[in-house]
Structure formats: C-alpha cells, structure tokens
Nucleic acid binder design. Structure first.
Length: 343
DNA sequence: CACTCGTGGCC
DNA sequence: TGGCCAAGAGT
C-alpha cells in the first residue's frame, strides 16, 4: 500500500519552500534539518498557505539555527506575530538555543532525542526524524488520522482512538523512503482525502479503502463533540503621544498571547472592570473589536487618549513612532489599532 | 484525559 | 454567518 502512495507522491508532490522533491531526494540532495524543524513547528495546527511567507521571512532573517539562537526574544516574537499559538515562538527560540549550546548547532537525529527539545512533540519528532534523517518513524497528524480512519473504516471517535490509528499507521510505514512516505500521506489528506467531500474517485488508495467501499468515508473520523465557546468582554487603551510614540505592554510569557506586544487593558471576562493605564479623558471608539480564540469569543471596547509627555506608567513601555510596527502585534491587538486608525 | 492556546479560510 | 477545520504541544 505504501508503494502505491509513494508512486502517487512522485507525480503529485506539492511544491513547498522547505521540501526536497522526490526527484531531488533520489538524486542525493538532503533536506536541511533546521528548515524541516522550522517548517514543522510553523505547520502545527496551521495551513501551508498561512506558513509560506512566515517561513521565507524567518529563514531569510535567520539562515541557521545559530543565527536564530542569537536573536533577541522581541524580534522573534514580532516576526511570529499573526501566525498564532505564540508558545510555539517562545519554544522555537528555546529549542534553537538548546541546539546551539548543547548540540553544537546540529539537530539530534533520533526520535527520542528530538522529543526532548522544547516545542517538539510526538508528531514533530517523527516528522523531523523521517523527513530530515530518513528514519522509519511514524507521523500521526490530523491528516494521517483521517486517512487511517477511512482506510480501515474505524468509527471509534477521536481522541480516544488515537492509539489505534497510530498502530495502523505504523504498520504502513516503509523502511525505504520513510520521509517521502510521511509527506505523501499528509499530502493525500490535504488534497484528496479531505475532511469534506473526499475525492475518492482519483485516490491512489481507493481500492484498499474500506470506508470508500462502505460509503462511510465522508463521515470519518468521528470526533467527540466540542464544548460551546463562551463570549468574554474586555477593554484596551490606545495612548499616543504628540510626537507619535505609543504606550504598550509586553505580555507575560505564560498564558494567552504570552510574550507578545499588546495594548494595556482589563481582564477578559463576563463583566470586566475598566482599568485605564493612567488618568485621562478616555474616548471609547464607536465600534468594538470582535475576535474569536480557540475556546472563547471576545468583544473588546477600544479607548483612546493622548499620552502626556514624560509619562511611563508602571510595567509598560513607550515605543517611538518609528519603532512601533503594527505587524509586531498579535491579530486581536492589530484589530484594535486598525479600528483606531479608521475612526 | 481534558483543557489551554490563534488565526484565516471555507461553505 | 457561525461552526469547522488545519503538518499539535504543554500542562
């Protein structure tokens, strides 16, 4: 079965900036573990389309793991802004420094060693080991879970069925070309064996696929139902000085938007207490920011005022007009800025 | 195991 | 338009 998939991949492999094509790989070209690691971390719960530009900017700015390890935290967090799941960026930097300092700048080449690195879990360790180092490790991501559930018509819901799906995936992992095979399954899941209306008619695995025969492919994999998202509220405060400087805060590393730049503001809950960073005649903007996170909706009231000269409220920072880049902000904070700019 | 943790595209 | 979904990890 893996042979049919590899044959399909040889023809249909998608072009990605971090990928070595099957033809190039056959010619002896090896992937750069740094670029494989970078792409796999960026691709966690994130689409290829969203990752492309970020990958280009990161690798252009920091071509090697040592360059990244030497980068200041705020530059890396700013470059990651907008991509989401910011713990990935903090762990990316931690991991780069571990590789630079403890591994002489060379990524470890086994699953077990990779698994110890910050931000590298079971999926990413297997992906790097197989793609960058040709080790027959089994990757299990959302794509592989879906392909296996359909191929073997497994109706037990995720995440409980994960071990079962992993066992099936392991049986199919070949000793030869394990990296191409891993990418082939994921490409198949992304382009043919899609969550909705899978293209079974042109699938290289259509013959052995049990769910296709049973007609159950589109409804697999089953998943346990999710909890509804509550709505929370909050206030943010945009203060600009006459010379154009802005008042911002660096959020603590733990928790939501950890380590990112943001506007000072209230807690986010059912009925937040307004908490302006200094006394002034704050003006509430006429419309609000609406944003949805993984597990709640947020409605932000945006306030603005002029920042007096020579004032730096405790634990906050002033960014000069030319040092403030809206692109350094996480999206919810950039939405507040966009709203202010448009009023 | 269950929960936290972003964002944009899709229908 | 609101829920679903995406190459998951950490706690």
């Amino acid at each position: 079965m893996s042979d049919a998939l590899l044959a399909w991949y040889d023809v249909h492999a998608r072009d990605m900036p971090w990928r070595v094509s099957p033809a190039d790989r056959a010619a002896g070209i090896c992937p750069d573990p740094y670029r494989i690691w970078m792409s796999e971390v960026m691709l966690q719960q994130t689409t290829v389309a969203a990752v492309r530009d970020y990958f280009h900017r990161f690798t252009a700015r920091w071509p090697t793991v040592r360059d990244l390890a030497d980068a200041p935290d705020e530059q890396v967090m700013g470059e990651w802004a907008g991509l989401g799941y910011y713990a990935r960026a903090r762990n990316l930097l931690k991991c780069a420094r571990v590789v630079a300092n403890d591994y002489d700048g060379q990524f470890p080449d086994t699953y077990d060693a990779l698994l110890t690195l910050p931000g590298v879990g079971p999926y990413t360790a297997a992906a790097i080991a197989s793609i960058a180092f040709d080790r027959p490790e089994t990757v299990l991501d959302g794509n592989v879970e879906r392909v296996m559930a359909r191929l073997f018509d497994i109706h037990d819901p995720l995440p409980a069925s994960k071990a079962q799906l992993k066992a099936r995936a392991a049986e199919l992992t070949p000793q030869l070309r394990p990296g191409d095979y891993a990418q082939a399954v994921m490409d198949l899941g992304a382009t043919i064996c899609t969550p909705k209306s899978p293209a079974c008619g042109i699938c290289p695995l259509r013959d052995p696929c049990v769910a296709r025969q049973a007609g159950t492919a589109p409804e697999l994999p089953k998943k346990t139902p999710k909890k509804p998202k509550p709505t929370r509220y909050g206030h943010v405060y945009l203060a600009q000085r006459a010379d154009g400087a802005w008042l911002l805060e660096r959020r603590p590393d733990k928790g939501l938007l950890g380590g990112m730049l943001g506007w000072p503001g209230s807690d986010w809950n059912d009925a937040p207490q307004p908490s302006p960073p200094f006394m002034a005649e704050w003006q509430a903007l006429s419309s609000e920011v609406r944003h949805t996170f993984t597990h709640f909706h947020l409605i932000l009231t945006v306030h603005s005022a002029e920042l007096p000269d020579h004032m730096t409220p405790n634990a906050l920072q002033i960014l000069d007009k030319h040092d403030f880049r809206p692109s350094d902000l996480p999206t919810v904070m950039r939405k507040a800025y966009d709203l202010w700019r448009g009023q």
